[in-house]
Design a binder for these strands. Sequence first.
DNA 1: ATGTCCTCCTAAGGAGGA
Length: 271
Amino acid sequence: MAPRKRHLKLATFNVNGIASRLPHLLEWLAHEAPDIVALQELKATDAAFPAAAIEAAGYGAIWHGQSSWNGVAILARDAIPVENRRGLPGDPTDTQSRYLEAAAHGIVVGALYLPNGNPQPGPKFDYKLRWMARLAKHARTLVDLPHPVVLLGDFNVIPDDIDVYDPKAWRKDALIQPEVREAYAALLAQGWTDALREVFGDEVVYTFWDYFRQHAERDRGLRIDHILLNPVLAGGLQEVGVDRWVRLQDKASDHAPTWARVAVPVAGKSR
DNA sequence: ATGTCCTCCTAAGGAGGA
């Protein structure tokens, strides 16, 4: 008998303020029914997280908030994520809420909001590079696990020139600097599969459009929200997508929900 | 160089971040 599999939709969405984006989030959850969701830029304290509304929508959640900035969460449809860790190891003085890790639906989920790093050069860029080094060190402990692992979120990295509408316009930006691209490439080289690039091949796909000059309407965007699969999970990659309709709504976040559909063996039924 | 949107602080716009 063939091993039984089930399909899971894994998504990441930088909401740019959970308080102002809650209606969009709930509409998107109802419409697309992702199984696992990583949220970034909650811009809210733990107490202000709208757990009741999200639970009413059918999702269990864990979150790591912070006043004004940052803030990440993991949602699971009809399940409560089991938390593994909050915060990346390697710097006890780092107080920014940017990493949360949990198990849900049989998958290890590392949800991250990588530092923007602008202006560059400067202390914020240095922090970005240090954070990426810490991420790589931790990711190394996850990639070869015998379980499915996904590392997803707003990476604030433009991996290649195809991932930005105008590389020259962004050449001084932290998201495109050679050190940042090299750090991202080195992370992938551990054995992670960049799900969107894997499926899109040499086709352009964006996940973020800034608020200036009607860039969303004109489709002048960046690909900076990424979904990385370890080898166990990459074998089941089926389909990817970006829900651009969410970005084109009124009062939208500057990011669109980005997702990958994967097939995973049902626990205990396959070998 | 510019533009736009979100949050906080605290009562009206300004600062800081992206």
